[in-house]
Simulated scan of single mutants.
Amino acid sequence: MEFIEVRDVWKYYGDYPALRGVNLTVGEGEFHCIVGPSGSGKTTLLSLIGGLDRVSNGYLRVSRYELHRLNEAELDRYRNEYVGFVFQLYYLIPRMSVVENVELPLIARGVGPRERREMALEALEMVGLRDKANRRPSELSGGEQQRVAIARAIVARPRLLLADEPTGNLDTRNAVIIMDIFRRLNRELGVTIVMVTHNLELIRNCHRVSRISDGKILRTYEVPQAEEGIGKLIQELMSV
């Protein structure tokens, strides 16, 4: 059974169908990319999978959770216990230290102060920023702030990480660092990752990539391991 199953999902905003009968599957432990032009429905689909919004029609399951059937309290529990989110913007609280920002999801889960601090420092270690734990976000570069946001997303050890244009505000060097962190989370910890991006070069980090346009998944591709095959796939995606 697939870890994520999206079947004939529609999402309306008023009379406008942002998603039009989307079908998608993602295996457990998979790193899956979703690519497409602006306004194609990428972020809407990610929001539905993350329980941030509700489907209008269709079937949506993540592991044992049938999201289209959950009430608000159950959706809150799903988001809090199961999913980590990374966005293009970092959403760090300026007046709090780096480690305090990372601790926030654990406060919501009722984790005690000592364990909370240990878990936050461990998450910062994973993204290479333990030595910046007591800094304020304003003292960090954009790439470092995004790494703090990733630490916050993984501190509660989610099974699913959803990333919406996580390198959109970063230069090439920092984008490479972020992708390396994602690959390690996926390979070493088995975290399932679904990443939305407009940067086709990033698909080389994924197992599969889905192309979305006008609210529909056009096709899902296996990402080749050989560089030549990846180059051909990028060219094909650019021509669609």
Rank of each mutant, 00 (worst) to 15 (best):
V155W: 02
I178L: 04
F182Q: 03
K132G: 07
R130A: 15
R152I: 07
R135L: 14
I181E: 03
I181P: 02
G168W: 06
R136Y: 15
G168E: 10
A151H: 03
R173G: 02
N169S: 13
A175I: 10
V148P: 06
D180Q: 15
R135H: 15
V148T: 05
A156F: 08
R152S: 07
I178Q: 02
A163I: 12
K132I: 09
Q146Y: 08
A163T: 08
G168A: 11
A133V: 07
R159E: 14
A133K: 12
N134L: 15
R152M: 11
I177Q: 13
I181G: 02
V155Y: 09
A151Q: 06
L162H: 01
E165Y: 12
G168K: 04
D131I: 07
E139V: 08
R135I: 05
R173T: 10
T172S: 14
R147T: 09
N134T: 14
Q146H: 11
P166T: 08
D131C: 01
R130G: 10
R147S: 06
L162Q: 04
G168Q: 09
N134A: 14
E144L: 10
R152W: 09
A153I: 09
R157V: 00
I154N: 00
I150S: 06
P166Q: 07
D171S: 06
A156D: 00
N174M: 13
R136F: 15
D131H: 15
R183P: 00
L160S: 01
D131G: 01
T167W: 10
L185R: 04
I177G: 00
A163Q: 04
K132C: 14
A151K: 04
P166F: 09
L161V: 05
R157G: 00
R130C: 02
P158Q: 10
G142Y: 03
T172I: 12
V148A: 01
A156M: 09
A133R: 10
A156V: 00
L160A: 04
R152L: 12
M179P: 01
T172H: 10
S138A: 14
I178P: 04
V155K: 07
R184G: 10
Q146I: 13
D131V: 11
D164M: 09
P166V: 03
P166W: 01
L161Y: 01
Q145V: 03
R173P: 00
R173M: 08
N134M: 15
E144C: 10
